[in-house]
């Protein structure tokens, strides 16, 4: 299989599962597929910096979480009918998905800009630890800040609305998520193929040489980092709509680790890789989890084997070639 066919196979499989769920009258399968699509989208965001840019961020839960809190807080205020802000401008809540997505994207981008400015001055292990530490700081903040439920989290009861569609219907919501995912992947695909993507790839491989031809390595990496944060935040907003609930657990460092696992299981620097990775993870969780309470033990072992012996991940395996990145 060529990479292109492997990607198409993943996309079709992701569509087929909820269809099968509808035919077999198992709406749960639709929910699972929706979850895969959303977690995969978070992975697509991370993949942009990790796979294409070579920046190992262990703090993407922060963007996932901030997107989630944007959705939760805006919907909460819409439900309660009180404004989010009175000063300096009057700002009300909303249950419009479009508005929520935009706010989530902007918030994720701004947070990534802030964290990126500090952490991208470093590289390697510093970068890993600093992204982790900042995510952890926000995690502790959301736990202890009482206004939006703290550790308890914030329920929103109903999904937000989009063009008058019935978003509570599992299939409708899945199709919304799938459409957003396709758009995101197309955009990422354009970005990595454009001149910017080439510059990003060059920066990953040899920063000094790039700098000598006049491209600012820092600026290229920062732009990629901001885009990545925005995509992961969008996934976070959708995740909250899926569960009708947001809580600090979205921000825990295990979430950061899991998003990274999706990218690796699927295959680094492959557009649909994170979706394949998330699908495998959710599949293992469901199958192993039904067999043993200690399923995480086996997932851990499997992950070690994949990293040591199957570095291309699922997509690399399916397309019979290894990813060009380690």
């Amino acid at each position: 299989m060529t990479p292109r066919i492997a990607s198409a196979a993943v996309a079709l499989l992701l569509l087929a599962v909820p269809l099968a769920g509808t035919v077999m009258d198992e709406p749960w399968l639709i929910t699972l597929a929706t979850r895969v699509a959303i977690l995969g989208m978070a992975g697509v965001g991370l993949n942009l910096v990790l796979g294409y840019g070579g920046m190992v961020s262990l703090g993407h839960a922060a963007y996932f979480g901030i997107g989630g809190y944007v959705a939760g807080v805006l919907a909460h205020h819409a439900l309660e009918g009180d404004p989010v802000l009175l000063w300096p401008v009057m700002l009300g809540g909303t249950d419009s998905m479009i508005v929520i997505w935009l706010v989530a994207i902007v918030s994720g981008a701004l947070l990534a800009l802030l964290i990126g400015c500090l952490s991208l001055r470093t590289s390697g292990v510093y970068f890993i630890m600093i992204t982790l530490a900042f995510a952890q700081m926000i995690y502790y903040f959301t736990i202890s800040w009482p206004a939006y439920g703290g550790e308890d989290g914030l329920p929103i009861y109903l999904r937000n609305s989009l063009f008058g569609l019935d978003t509570m219907d599992p299939m409708t919501f899945f199709l919304i998520v799938f459409a957003v995912l396709v758009v995101v992947i197309c955009l990422v695909s354009m970005v990595v193929r454009a001149r910017f993507g080439l510059a990003l790839n060059a920066v990953r491989q040899n920063e000094t040489r790039v700098r000598s031809v006049g491209i600012g390595g820092f600026r290229v990496r920062l732009v990629a980092f901001v885009m990545s944060g925005a995509i992961t935040a969008l996934a976070g907003a959708l995740f909250v709509d899926l569960n009708r609930f947001v809580s600090p657990s979205m921000l825990s460092w295990h979430t950061s680790g899991e998003i990274m696992v999706f990218v690796i299981l699927g295959g680094v620097a492959r557009l649909w890789g994170p979706i394949a990775g998330a699908a495998l993870y959710v599949f293992l969780e469901q199958v192993l989890g039904s067999m043993t309470d200690h399923w995480q033990f086996w997932v851990g072992l499997l992950l070690i084997v994949v990293v040591l012996h199957a570095r291309g991940g699922i997509m690399g395996f399916a397309s019979g070639q290894r990813s060009d990145d380690g």
Partner: peptide, 14 residues
């Protein structure tokens, strides 16, 4: 470092 992070993250689970 990426592989190191992943393997040691997996070790935590194990």
């Amino acid at each position: 470092h990426l592989d190191q992070v992943l393997v040691t993250f997996a070790l935590i689970l194990v």
